[in-house]
């Protein structure tokens, strides 16, 4: 029968100390919305659960020389932040659609990222916002661009004795707009069938795409960037046929390895990428204009 020890460090040093002490016997838990379900389903638990919930110092959304979001920030905090809504719109789109209010009240950004599900809602937006993960372990801090963070389904570069501390998003989003589409069968309590995040940087007159980033979830074993589609858009004048072509590229095998699952067939997922890359690009562009 499952049994475990439940430890609740109150600061980062304690947490890292405990991780070091218990090594592979321990697992981290933040909001618990993934971990508790997994323990219940598999009837297996690590010997020790190290809870990060009391690390209240890691719950923050700040803007100073870039955006800093503490790993323990809940989805609900992101949803209710006007800063996130107006400047990191895609992340706001995503956070406000995770599960339900109850889940968002406890589920954390760090948990969502470190759980590394191919369907992680916040991963796509953070990828297009060019976020960097800040990890801290016994050897100190290191920074890993999010695009290099996911190594496989439910796998990341985080070492067993490291804690994700925050996500950093570079400054200068002045001419950027972003949007995220979570394709689902109903409006709440959902995982995305496919997720599409787009960030665009537009010229002063809003006509030209200076920079573009596109990320997809459930389109590969990990959340991914659709580089060929991004490259296609860069420098182009924003227009329907241009965006349509970006959608085509993003949905092609050049960008993703979409598969059929019980939840949805591959052809339909591809279709949604094709349709929603342009729609999200337009929404992102709209948001640049409205800032």
């Amino acid at each position: 029968m499952q049994d475990f020890e439940y430890l609740m460090p109150t600061n980062l040093d304690q947490a890292i100390g405990l991780l070091k002490k218990y090594e592979n016997k321990a697992a981290l838990i933040a909001g618990g919305t993934d971990v508790m379900v997994k323990i219940g389903k598999t009837r297996k638990a690590p010997d020790v659960l190290i809870s990060l919930r009391r690390l209240s110092a890691l719950r923050y959304i700040k803007k100073n020389g870039g955006y800093h979001i503490g790993a323990l920030t809940t989805h609900r905090m992101l949803e209710q932040s006007t800063l996130v809504q107006s400047e990191l719109s895609a992340l706001h789109d995503a956070a406000s659609q995770v599960g339900s209010v109850q889940i968002r009240n406890v589920g954390t950004l760090g948990g969502n990222i470190c759980n590394a599900a191919p369907s992680a809602d916040t991963a796509g937006p953070l990828l297009v916002l060019d976020a960097t993960a800040v990890l801290e372990g016994p050897l100190g801090r290191r920074r890993v661009p999010l695009k290099e963070f996911f190594t496989g389904t439910y796998r990341t570069v985080r070492k067993p004795d490291e804690v994700l501390v925050e996500m950093e998003i570079p400054e200068d989003l002045g001419r950027y707009g972003s949007a995220y589409w979570k394709h689902t069968r109903r409006k709440a309590m959902e995982l995305p069938l496919i997720g599409i995040a787009v960030a665009l940087k537009l010229s002063q007159d809003n006509s030209q795409i200076l920079d573009s980033r596109i990320a997809l979830t459930v389109a590969a074993p990990t959340p991914i960037r659709a580089y060929p589609a991004e490259d296609f858009l860069k420098g182009k004048v924003i227009a329907d046929d241009v965006l349509k072509e970006a959608g085509r590229i993003a949905s092609s095998a050049d960008c993703c390895t979409i598969r059929t699952s019980l939840r949805c067939e591959a052809w339909y997922r591809e279709e949604i990428v094709r349709v929603f890359v342009p729609r999200m690009a337009k929404l992102a562009a709209e948001r640049v204009k409205n800032r």
Binding site: Y6, M8, G32, R53, R76
Partner: peptide, 28 residues
């Protein structure tokens, strides 16, 4: 029992949560 139905919702420190997913040590 897995946070998908809401029947177990209670309020903890002002927030609605699924009590089925709330580890008891955290309630301290």
């Amino acid at each position: 029992g897995v946070g998908e139905c809401g029947c177990c919702t209670v309020i903890v420190d002002g927030d609605a949560v699924n009590s089925c997913l709330y580890p008891i040590p955290e309630i301290e």
